[in-house]
């Protein structure tokens, strides 16, 4: 009987592909964002509104859409003139780096400066898998309740940007914006927090700025 010491990161294979993705994109001058949040938090609506903004040069943007099934979201990107590819996991609850690598190979990224991955709607699993993104954006909506950062800490700990969406619905909820912000900052003091309504268009200028700067 022998005991073998391994000490290897369980997700090292995924992380190696993620590093390869990031290096390849960096070499081409492309920044990749990983957009994460619950189903229905408004990730795709946020993209629709932000990318249709007059300050956005659509030829410099591409989107990888991730869902279990359907190409609904790729069609939405198509409709606003954004280069896109749809990935379907047919059951898997998160995207992995190798899926995004395939997406990067299939997309024409000539002239693109910003690549956004609209991940599967999920507050848990998606946070554990790096895709090679340069920045992570967590989207949450006021109807989800302000207790989510402490309940689902990993996403908020690893996000560079946290967006509070559907702020137009705030009067109809008991969502406490200050409490939410304090909880996010207690987990992740460097998080930059934004408040918006992707549906109505409030607060979108700042989001467009960090997506395109």
């Amino acid at each position: 009987m022998k005991t073998i010491t391994v000490n290897k990161n369980v997700l090292s294979k995924n992380d190696e592909i993620a590093e390869r993705n990031q290096a390849a994109l960096t070499a081409r001058g492309i920044r990749m964002f990983n957009l994460l949040g619950s189903p229905g938090s408004g990730k795709t609506t946020l993209l629709e509104n932000a990318l249709a903004h007059p300050n956005v040069d659509k030829s410099k943007i591409a989107v990888i859409e991730g869902d279990l099934f359907t190409d609904f979201d790729a069609k939405r990107m198509d409709e606003i003139g954004i280069r896109t590819i749809q990935l379907n996991t047919e059951g898997a609850c998160h995207l992995e780096a190798d899926m995004v690598e395939c997406g990067i190979e299939e997309l024409n990224l000539n002239g693109v400066e910003t690549l956004i991955v609209d991940n599967i709607g999920n507050l848990v699993c998606t946070a554990s898998f790096s895709l090679g993104e340069h920045h992570r954006i967590a989207v949450t909506s006021v109807t989800e309740g302000n207790d989510k950062p402490l309940k689902y800490p990993k996403l908020f700990q690893t996000a560079d940007y946290v967006v509070i969406n559907k702020i137009d619905l705030l009067p109809f909820t008991n969502f406490d914006v200050d409490r939410f912000k304090a909880d996010v900052l207690s987990l992740n003091p460097n998080a930059k927090i934004f408040v918006c309504s992707a549906f109505k268009g409030d607060g979108m200028d700042e989001i467009v700025e960090f997506l395109t700067k």
Binding site: M1, K2, T3, I4, T5, V6, N7, K8, N9, V10, L11, D15, A127, S128, S130, K154, Q157, T158
Partner: peptide, 14 residues
Amino acid sequence: TGTSQMYVKTFRGE
């Protein structure tokens, strides 16, 4: 801490 919080530490066998 961070995103990598799972490591295969050791295994025992023959």
